[in-house]
Design a protein around this nucleic acid. Structure first.
Lengths: 219, 219
DNA sequence: GGTGGTTAAATTGTCGACATCTTCTTCGAC
DNA sequence: GTCGAAGAAGATGTCGACAATTTAACCACC
């Protein structure tokens, strides 16, 4: 056994196929700093994969917008500026608005119960000051509404954009008092979706993302 | 010189780098039929590139949504169903709405003149029955408004979605009477953008795409 | 002491060969 | 005659080595 099991990403030796997932996770979890160079040879050692696999993974991640590639100059972790984060959130605003509207049209009784349950859990998390838990529920809610909307295209677009913004989303969650504002907006979205009110649901979703954008600008 | 210059895509022997562009063009131009298998070895001969280059290109195009890849089963031209085309247009509807609003905020006098000029040319093309010319102007208008909006993120999203839909867009352009409907909507968008009216511009853009969706459903 | 050019190291890009998987064909049995 | 299995052919996935390019260091020269 070689003498370097000190990988930056934690789990040494990764299967030859989900190298992409491993590197993606390392980036979004912040184990690779923004603008950090991603040298193919180094990564192949760290993850125990061949250089080809790493190379393919870097192309994939470049298409997802997580890494930047320059011809003959290699790849580095993409640093999303505040300006770009705002742009991304603006696109998310309109697309998630669409998804919320579609969800309001198609939501079933069973899904209504699920959404209500998520809403209750969010309320509880905020009341108890569990920021991390709230953040998880936040992601879950957004994802479920998109899934309920049933728009595969929109889902793909949002998922890609969300991954690019994790860092900024995280910073936002730590702003004091932010969860309270956010909670009310989330509950409003849930209410309108469950009321089968597409237009109102779209407005509520857009209002929420608009609020996120305002908070980003305030930093 | 080898004796096979009979490429399906036209230009034999392509530089080792823009194989992606060549294959993409062949797909959107319809020279590769939907669901047609794209065998790496065949393509590398047709385009005079190595298999690695073709392989990289296919990955790229898969990320753009133009080809489908299945593990160990190869790539084929993605056949976008009517249902998917509608979904895609719905996302475009909201994102281009956003771009139109942004464009209305930022448009300069010079750009206003340009948009007006495009509008006049569209009117003339419809009057003269130049369907192809009108289709080109159509694309130009959409692209310019997005560029004027200055949202790089939104631009990327729309560009990707547009490429997936070319086939259906093309079919739509051939519907009798369709250009007339479309023309009025385009002129409305131009008017509102030039009037620096973000909300009205967004509504106009959404109305146009909604009309496109209706036309798609009518097929 | 600073600047320009040249060399060397490091890293990415490309290519060909081999391994693995899928699928079509073929042969045999029921 | 049909179903099933085994084998062969085709295509993709993976790997290692070589070529091309960028970047850094170094030395000569002004």
């Amino acid at each position: 056994m070689p003498a370097q099991e000190q990988t930056a990403a934690g789990s040494g030796a990764v299967a030859p196929e989900d190298v992409t997932a491993a590197i993606r996770e390392a980036i979004v979890r912040g184990e690779f700093a923004p603008n950090q160079r991603l040298v193919e040879a180094d990564l192949s050692q760290q993850f125990g994969a061949s250089r080809s696999g790493v190379r393919t993974a870097l192309f994939e991640l470049a298409n997802e917008g997580l890494v930047e590639r320059v011809q003959h100059r290699g790849a580095r972790v993409r640093a999303v500026t505040l300006e770009e984060a705002i742009e991304i959130s603006e696109v998310r605003m309109v697309v998630e608005g669409l998804c919320a509207a579609k969800a309001a049209e198609r939501v079933t009784d069973e899904e209504i119960a699920e959404l209500r349950s998520i809403g209750d859990a969010m309320r509880a998390a905020v009341a108890d000051g569990h920021v991390l838990k709230y953040s998880e529920l936040n992601q879950l809610l957004h994802r479920r509404i998109i899934e309920i909307g049933g728009q595969a295209t929109a889902a793909g677009v949002v998922e890609r954009l969300r991954a690019q913004n994790v860092r900024h989303q995280f910073r936002l969650a730590l702003v004091p008092g932010r969860p309270n504002v956010s909670l009310a907006e989330h509950l409003a979205i849930i209410d309108e979706v469950c009321a089968h009110a597409p237009d109102a649901a779209e407005r509520a979703a857009r209002r929420h993302l608009a609020s996120v954008i305002q908070a980003l600008k305030a930093i």
